[in-house]
Simulated scan of single mutants.
Amino acid sequence: MKPTTIRLSWPRPALWDNEKASHMVKAAAKRTQRKEAWALALEAKWPRDPAAVLTFRFCPPDRRRRDTHNLPATMKAAIDGIADAMKVDDVGFRCVFPTEFGPVEKGGAVYIEIGGQP
């Protein structure tokens, strides 16, 4: 049976909308995240599904206050990497983002579960 969940690293600070990082730092963070998501989706052998439902769970590295409204922007490069691995256009993906953070996890993590049409 194929894994339905992958575990990504916690988003680098440059990926958060409120971060004032240079264009080069942001681009490097996006490249790294896209490559990580691509590799994990390939390893999990996720099927080609242009209408996949991606459900996100964010487990922060500490108890600092964070805004859940920034979560979608931090995952754009990861979504692109998953689409690359599936060889599909991500325009049909349905991404479900949480309204609250999960439990604190050492180093932080983002779990992405794949499912079919709801």
Rank of each mutant, 00 (worst) to 15 (best):
N70I: 00
A83E: 08
R57P: 00
F93M: 04
F93Y: 14
D80Q: 11
T68I: 09
R57I: 12
A77Y: 07
R64W: 01
P60R: 09
T68E: 09
I82K: 04
D84W: 11
R66H: 06
A85C: 03
M75A: 15
R57W: 02
D80C: 10
T74P: 00
A78N: 06
P72W: 03
G81H: 05
V53G: 02
A83H: 09
R66A: 10
K87S: 12
P60T: 13
C59H: 14
R63S: 15
R64D: 14
F93S: 07
P72I: 01
R66L: 11
T68M: 13
T55C: 07
R65P: 07
F93P: 03
V91H: 10
D89C: 06
C59D: 15
P60K: 09
I82C: 04
A85L: 05
I79G: 01
T68Q: 02
N70S: 15
T68C: 12
R63T: 15
T68G: 00
T74M: 04
R66E: 02
G81K: 04
D90G: 11
K87M: 12
R65H: 06
D89I: 10
G81T: 05
M75K: 01
I79Q: 11
D67A: 07
K87F: 06
F58T: 00
R66S: 08
A83K: 09
K87C: 09
D80S: 13
A83R: 02
D62A: 10
A85N: 00
A78Q: 05
N70T: 13
K87A: 12
A83Y: 09
M75S: 13
